[in-house]
Design a protein around this nucleic acid. Structure first.
Lengths: 199, 199
DNA sequence: AGTACATGAATGAATAGTCATTCATGTACT
DNA sequence: AGTACATGAATGACTATTCATTCATGTACT
């Protein structure tokens, strides 16, 4: 049997439980049971319930963020940069089905103080998008009338919502590549077949 | 002084409090205080805390849904239909700043049973989008390679996330028309200036 | 038109249940 | 035999919900 350290075990149990029940409805004892440890053990590794959520968020988003930044630094073409962004995010979400839900929880459920804290951490991640768009506008390949800060939200919102597809349809199995392609081409070209049709 | 009935007063107080503190952190006494009624009064009008949230959701989404459906029934062009959809949603969200947050809460925070319930109600609303896309594909004006069910999510996710713009920037005042235009043109045409640039 | 009675909306203090957190005790390893 | 980690029952704080009581308003009778 593979032995995993307790910190990791608790993190992954909590991710699962939070995703299933939501942060507030999840009980510490649920997490403890899922992780096969005693309730008290959790407090050896984490300060409190919220600390567990924060740790999941930090550690996982941190990983994605770091990897994305690294890959982006080696790239110059805005559209390829966006592709990297999308595929990294979706890949991470597909790998850990529960993570997407937990991120959404973290983004909405927590109180104002905390919200401000994560805002800094998290907006750095979404600001990557607006930076790429500005870059594309500077290079003259992206429409200058697009507002990068609005587009950033639209883009991340789309990504966030789409990252849940893996969890619904039991029959259809989309691949990360497929969804990446859809999102990207939607965002780059739009749904219209022929651009001339726009009034 | 304008006298409003208590049901309405509680609904609007609760919308405000839920948006500010989140469903679980919000106390009944907070809502009561905001509505200037006694705690017990709330239970004359609602069965329990969750019933308040559900009522907000039902009533408000219901209004938007009904109005959108009505307007759409008089329209045939898919792109104009999408425009109606977007502008109706954003208009409603701008009118009631707190509503957007509450909808997001409702969409994420509640337990599985309830989630399934709202899924039916709510997915009817988002399915409007995929229906419009299919219509556009049938008419031969939308790209046939777009997956309507994926695009639906992307589109609504974008809309949902963008609907929060009013709440952040204190300096910038975007109009509903402006944001509608951005989202729509992003979705229809994409960010690329020249479609030929796509590999 | 004044008095007595009825109604039920509104109140908010008291209750009751839920859980996060603690800590006294146990276990295992060196 | 000391150290570090682990346990889970007990504690106590927090709040949703209840319900006995109040009181403003309406009705009917003289």
């Amino acid at each position: 049997m593979v032995v995993v350290n307790k910190h990791t075990k608790i993190i992954s149990a909590a991710t699962k439980v939070f995703a299933k029940k939501g942060f507030f409805t999840a009980r510490i004892s649920d997490i403890a049971k899922e992780a096969k440890v005693a309730d008290g053990t959790i407090y050896i590794y984490f300060n409190n319930k919220y600390d567990i959520l924060l740790s999941i968020f930090e550690e996982e988003i941190g990983k994605i963020f770091a990897k994305t930044e690294k890959l982006l630094s080696e790239e110059q073409d805005p559209s390829r940069m966006l592709q990297i962004y999308v595929s990294q995010y979706l890949q991470a979400m597909k790998k850990n089905k529960y993570l997407g839900e937990v991120i959404q929880i973290e983004l909405r459920q927590t109180n104002k103080v905390i919200r401000n804290y994560r805002k800094n951490k998290f907006s750095a991640y979404t600001n990557i998008i607006s930076d790429i768009i500005r870059k594309g506008q500077d290079q003259g390949i992206y429409r200058p009338d697009i507002l990068p800060d609005v587009a950033k939200r639209a883009f991340f919102g789309a990504l966030d919502e789409v990252s849940g597809v893996w969890n619904i349809s039991l029959e259809t199995h989309y691949s990360v590549e497929e969804i990446t392609e859809q999102i990207l081409s939607l965002f780059l070209q739009g749904v219209l077949l022929d651009t001339d049709q726009v009034k």
